[in-house]
Computed example of a mutant assay.
Amino acid sequence: MIEMKKVGKTYPNGVQALKDINIHIDKEEFVYVVGPSGAGKTSIIKLIIREVVPTEGTIHVNGTNLGDLTKKQIPYLRRKIGVVFQDFKLFPKLSVFENIAFALEVTEEPPDRIKPRVMEVLDLVKLKNKTRHKPRELSGGEQQRVAMARAVVNRPAILIADEPTGNLDPETAWSIMGTLEDINHRGTTVVMATHNSHIVNHLKKRVIAIDDGNVLRDEWRGAYSYEA
């Protein structure tokens, strides 16, 4: 599903973000990527979605060598990868329905299939009663659930969640985690970068700990830190 072999990443400013990363993530796994700010978590996400390319090593996603992709092929890769960001990245002038439908429209989904699919994912995130609302009319948790619905509306094989609970209160964060687990149980691989030690320690999943560009630990049912 996702395989990184001997991956290193050095940016043009000379910062070495990742060093000799070897990771294999199977279909339908739920994986936390943890570590302090600047550890390399965001670089791993950018590499998986081909926003940046590695300086060394190879990356395969869904059987595709990302190093072989042309610029025209990258959007097709990203249709198979949903991404949820900490700051939601919703279109402020579009309604909830329109924000989600947009992800289908850009892939040229037939119009008669768009509404049923949008309503299906809105039901998944429990927001069917908010279709006409604009993002400013929603709570932070509701905006994050809209972002999650948009990320999975194209039925991606992989969902990348970059600090999805970072701006949310604890109760709302647990609600978001419940939705992510539901998405995972439906067959989507979930890779979640997070600083939330309480969630990681309570919802035992695989934990990949990154620090200073290196993989320190890769544990099944792991904890956030050695002390947890």
Rank of each mutant, 00 (worst) to 15 (best):
residue 80 K to D: 15
residue 80 K to G: 12
residue 80 K to V: 04
residue 81 I to P: 05
residue 82 G to F: 01
residue 84 V to C: 03
residue 85 F to H: 01
residue 85 F to S: 02
residue 86 Q to H: 01
residue 87 D to A: 13
residue 87 D to F: 13
residue 88 F to V: 11
residue 88 F to N: 07
residue 90 L to A: 03
residue 91 F to W: 11
residue 91 F to G: 00
residue 91 F to K: 02
residue 92 P to C: 06
residue 92 P to D: 12
residue 92 P to E: 08
residue 94 L to M: 14
residue 94 L to I: 03
residue 94 L to R: 14
residue 95 S to P: 04
residue 96 V to C: 03
residue 96 V to W: 02
residue 97 F to I: 03
residue 97 F to C: 06
residue 99 N to Q: 10
residue 100 I to N: 10
residue 101 A to L: 11
residue 102 F to S: 09
residue 102 F to L: 15
residue 103 A to P: 06
residue 103 A to W: 04
residue 104 L to K: 08
residue 104 L to R: 09
residue 105 E to D: 12
residue 107 T to W: 09
residue 107 T to D: 11
residue 107 T to K: 13
residue 108 E to S: 14
residue 109 E to G: 01
residue 109 E to V: 15
residue 109 E to L: 12
residue 109 E to C: 15
residue 109 E to I: 14
residue 110 P to G: 10
residue 111 P to E: 14
residue 111 P to A: 14
residue 112 D to I: 10
residue 112 D to G: 02
residue 112 D to H: 13
residue 113 R to C: 11
residue 114 I to S: 06
residue 115 K to F: 05
residue 116 P to W: 04
residue 116 P to F: 03
residue 116 P to N: 07
residue 117 R to I: 00
residue 118 V to W: 01
residue 118 V to D: 05
residue 119 M to S: 00
residue 122 L to D: 04
residue 123 D to S: 15
residue 123 D to A: 14
residue 124 L to W: 03
residue 125 V to G: 06
residue 125 V to Y: 04
residue 125 V to K: 06
residue 126 K to M: 13
residue 126 K to R: 15
residue 127 L to A: 07
residue 128 K to F: 03
residue 128 K to N: 13
residue 128 K to Y: 02
residue 128 K to C: 11
residue 129 N to W: 10
residue 130 K to I: 03
residue 130 K to D: 02
residue 130 K to F: 04
residue 133 H to K: 15
residue 134 K to D: 04
residue 134 K to V: 06
residue 135 P to N: 02
residue 136 R to Q: 12
residue 137 E to K: 07
residue 138 L to W: 05
residue 138 L to I: 07
residue 139 S to I: 08
residue 139 S to V: 10
residue 139 S to P: 07
residue 139 S to G: 10
residue 140 G to R: 08
residue 140 G to Q: 08
residue 141 G to F: 05
residue 141 G to E: 08
residue 141 G to K: 07
residue 142 E to K: 07
residue 144 Q to Y: 05
residue 144 Q to I: 09
residue 144 Q to L: 05
residue 145 R to I: 12
residue 147 A to I: 02
residue 147 A to G: 08
residue 147 A to R: 04
residue 149 A to E: 02
residue 149 A to I: 02
residue 150 R to C: 03
residue 150 R to Q: 01
residue 150 R to P: 00
residue 151 A to V: 01
residue 151 A to K: 00
residue 151 A to P: 01
residue 151 A to H: 02
residue 151 A to L: 00
residue 152 V to T: 02
residue 152 V to K: 00
residue 152 V to S: 00
residue 153 V to Q: 09
residue 154 N to R: 15
residue 155 R to A: 12
residue 155 R to N: 15
residue 155 R to F: 08
residue 156 P to K: 11
residue 156 P to I: 08
residue 158 I to C: 03
residue 158 I to D: 06
residue 158 I to N: 05
residue 159 L to Y: 00
residue 159 L to I: 04
residue 159 L to E: 01
residue 160 I to S: 01
residue 161 A to Y: 07
residue 161 A to T: 09
residue 164 P to D: 06
residue 165 T to A: 05
residue 165 T to L: 08
residue 166 G to Q: 06
residue 166 G to L: 10
residue 166 G to R: 09
residue 167 N to M: 10
